Simulated scan of single mutants.
Amino acid sequence: MKFGRREIIAAYVLVAPFVISYLVLFIYPTIKMVELSFTNAPLIGAGDWVGLANYVKLSKDNLFIQAALHTGYFVLLTVIPTTLIGLAIAMMVSRLNGWLQSLVLAAFFLPYILPVTVVYLIWTWMLDLQFGIAQYAIELFHGSRVAVFRDRYWAMPTVAFVTIWWTNGFNVLLFIAGLRNISQDIYDAAALDGASRWQMFRNITWPLVWPVTALVLTIQLILQLKIFDQIYLFTQGGPFNSTYVMVQFIYKNAFQLNRGGYAATVAVALFAVIVVVSVLQYQVLRVRGGKS
């Protein structure tokens, strides 16, 4: 099928705003960030070319290594749990009908639309050592109340829990959309053959919803590698740097220590990690889905 000159011009006109915006707002800043990472420039202003010195320094920076490990720990605490929880909630919500389904779905999605500052206020109140209502549950299972954001063992898991509560509504919506694409006739045929609920899930639901699962895992991996807001508000990286993460390391070097070149080096490293890990994960998950 051949397109006329008018159709081709119309296509270029429609695509041009996105391409220009992408080049100006993403490609150009990315190139400048890479260039800046090879200098000792401050946050604002020019600097001298230092080559790979920043990257060599970064590989020996203990605080950066700690931040990378803490970021990885946070990813382990959130990515797979929030995906599985989202799928479980979506399967339960999909069994409801009418206004009740809409009401329950809205209840799960409501936290997702809250600003991070509101989430911070809600959970600092709920987890307050003296007056927080969540401390009753902690006291029941732990035996005593805990200042969770000032305890190095509780701080990161607590921030991870709050993050799952806050962001999981979006995952639920994605899974609901995936489940609705599965024909009810398939389940009816399986029921006639005597399949149990577990067999239906293992042989029908899980393989057919796998592409959505791969998408959710990839999105969550990218988002959680960039964790900053919750950490900065709840713990400021403490106690004793136990929740210090990579984006906070970038923030400190850029805006507090005025090391623009070094901060750009960390940003490039994080960008490379996100690209490589997310692409590899998505490809592995896609291959896994093709074999299921």
Rank of each mutant, 00 (worst) to 15 (best):
Pro211His: 07
Phe141Met: 11
Ala53Cys: 05
Trp165Arg: 01
Ala177Ile: 09
Gln236Val: 13
Lys226Met: 13
Ala107Phe: 05
Leu23Met: 12
Val75Asn: 01
Ser242Thr: 11
Gln256Gly: 08
Trp49Arg: 10
Ala10Ser: 14
Ile219Glu: 04
Asn171His: 09
Gly98Ile: 09
Tyr153Lys: 11
Thr30Glu: 06
Ile8Lys: 13
Ser37Gly: 03
Leu285Lys: 01
Ile227Asp: 05
Val172His: 00
Ile89Trp: 00
Ile219Asn: 03
Ala272Phe: 09
Gln283Lys: 13
Gln256Arg: 11
Trp210Gln: 13
Lys252Leu: 12
Ile27Tyr: 05
Val24Gln: 04
Ile164Gln: 01
Ser102Ile: 07
Leu77Phe: 04
Leu127Cys: 05
Met33Thr: 15
Leu173His: 03
Val284Met: 11
Phe108Gly: 02
Tyr251Gly: 05
Leu257His: 08
Ser94Asn: 15
Gly132Met: 06
Phe234Pro: 00
Leu179Ile: 08
Ser196Thr: 15
Ile138Met: 03
Tyr251Leu: 07
Thr30Lys: 03
Glu139Val: 07
Arg180His: 13
Ile227Val: 15
Val148Asn: 00
Val247Cys: 03
Leu25Asn: 12
Val19Trp: 03
Tyr112Ile: 08
Ile8Asp: 08
Leu76Ser: 07
Val284Ser: 10
Leu14Ile: 13
Trp165Pro: 00
Val159Asp: 04
Tyr153Ala: 13
Leu14Asp: 10
Asn171Arg: 03
Val276His: 02
Gly169Gln: 03
Arg95Ile: 09
Ala195Gln: 07
Gly45Asn: 06
Ala254Lys: 01
Ile122Cys: 04
Leu100Trp: 09
Ala195Trp: 02
Gly237Ala: 07
Thr83Leu: 05
Leu103His: 05
Asn168Gln: 14
Asp128His: 11
Val276Ala: 13
Tyr244Cys: 06
Gln281Thr: 08
Ala195Met: 10
Asn97Val: 14
Trp165Asp: 09
Ala147Glu: 14
Pro115Ser: 14
Gln220Trp: 05
Glu7Pro: 01
Leu257Tyr: 14
Asn253Gln: 12
Ile222Ala: 08
Ser278Glu: 08
Asn181Arg: 14
Ile227Ala: 08
Gln236Asn: 15
Arg6Leu: 12
Phe74Thr: 06
Val275Ala: 12
Leu58Gln: 03
Lys226Gln: 15
Asn203Lys: 15
Ala10Asn: 14
Val287Ser: 11
Val104Leu: 05
Lys291Cys: 05
His70Ser: 12
Tyr187Ile: 11
Leu223Met: 12
Thr218Glu: 06
Gln101Pro: 01
Val247Tyr: 01
Val266Gly: 02
Val56Trp: 06
Ala88Arg: 04
Leu52Phe: 12
Leu100Ala: 14
Asn241Gly: 09
Leu285Asn: 07
Ala11Gln: 11
Asp151Ile: 07
Val273Gln: 02
His142Ala: 15
Val119Tyr: 00
Glu35Tyr: 10
Phe38Asn: 03
Val273Tyr: 00
Pro239Trp: 06
Arg288Gly: 12
Thr78Glu: 05
Ala11Asn: 08
Val268Asn: 02
Gln66Trp: 05
Thr205Ser: 06
Gln184Ile: 10
Leu233Thr: 07
Ala41Cys: 04
Ser94Gly: 08
Leu96Pro: 00
Ala68Leu: 15
Val146Ala: 02
Lys2Asn: 15
Thr82Asn: 08
Leu217Phe: 02
Pro115Val: 11
Val277Arg: 01
Val118Ala: 11
Pro42Leu: 08
Gln230Gly: 10
Thr167Cys: 09
Ser37Trp: 02
Lys226Ile: 09
Ala263Gln: 02
Phe175Gln: 02
Leu192Ala: 07
Ile164Asn: 01
